[in-house]
Amino acid sequence: MAYGAVIMKQIASNMKDIPTQIKNPELVKRRRRQIVDAAVQLFIENGFHKTTTRQIAKAAGFSIGSLYEYVASKEDVLYLVCDAIHAEVERGVSEALKRTTRGREALAEVIREYFLVCHRMCDHILLIYQETQSLPPQWRRKVLENEINITGIFVKVLARLVETGNFPYINERSIELVAHNISVLGHMWTFRRWFLARHYSIEDYIELQTDFILGISTGR
């Protein structure tokens, strides 16, 4: 499933969260997709606070009045952007799990897919960390819950591998910490790419960090 399709699916799931004046659900999905695409670039280029709803409307090809038929505020737009990014990460990791279920290979495949998503969406992930505090409390809680849900995917993979004896050196107490390590190492490529990209390709980074994580997992 392409990134755009993931956004459409996630926007649909959040239609009840964000009220709209439009009765046609398919039209709402399409229009909100346009708004999300336009807003991502503006938020990255100008920052959330300096971007106006009028700029978003213009970039999306709407009048300001039409924009407010689909979202009530700029914060609604940011929430839709953040949630769509989390959906892409969840999709990539879930598909990696479908490709292999064998011990170390399963974890390596999950790590690879997750890091590639972080690489493709560096600016978007950085946007989440920079602007989550700009969301109203109810949206901020949901964005943070999504972050924990992504780490939860790694927890499930590790727990399954521990149960099958593939990673005997990880105990139940340390599973969650290793899962958070994986999550943060993916984000490190986002935060430190200004330095890392000068010395490592994304493939180098994936290989080295996968060896590091598997080393923890197997007691090497």
Score class of each variant (00 low, 15 high):
5 A>P: 03
8 M>D: 08
9 K>H: 05
11 I>N: 01
12 A>T: 14
12 A>E: 10
21 Q>C: 00
21 Q>S: 10
22 I>Q: 06
23 K>M: 09
24 N>L: 09
25 P>F: 08
30 R>T: 02
31 R>I: 10
32 R>A: 06
32 R>H: 06
34 Q>F: 04
36 V>Q: 04
38 A>Y: 08
38 A>R: 05
40 V>K: 15
44 I>D: 07
45 E>R: 15
45 E>T: 12
46 N>W: 06
50 K>Q: 14
51 T>N: 09
52 T>E: 09
53 T>I: 03
54 R>Q: 14
68 Y>L: 04
71 V>P: 01
72 A>C: 10
78 L>K: 03
82 C>N: 15
85 I>W: 07
85 I>T: 06
86 H>S: 08
86 H>G: 10
86 H>I: 00
86 H>N: 15
87 A>W: 01
88 E>F: 03
91 R>H: 12
92 G>V: 05
93 V>S: 02
95 E>F: 07
99 R>S: 13
101 T>I: 09
101 T>K: 14
107 L>R: 06
107 L>P: 00
110 V>G: 15
111 I>G: 02
111 I>S: 08
113 E>S: 13
114 Y>D: 06
115 F>Y: 12
115 F>R: 06
124 H>A: 14
127 L>P: 04
133 Q>R: 12
135 L>R: 00
135 L>T: 05
138 Q>E: 14
144 L>T: 10
149 N>C: 07
151 T>R: 15
152 G>L: 00
155 V>L: 07
156 K>V: 03
160 R>C: 02
162 V>I: 10
163 E>G: 00
167 F>Q: 03
168 P>I: 06
173 R>Y: 08
174 S>T: 15
176 E>K: 14
176 E>V: 11
177 L>K: 14
180 H>D: 09
182 I>Y: 01
185 L>F: 14
192 R>Y: 08
193 R>Y: 09
194 W>V: 13
200 Y>R: 09
201 S>C: 08
202 I>C: 01
204 D>F: 02
206 I>G: 01
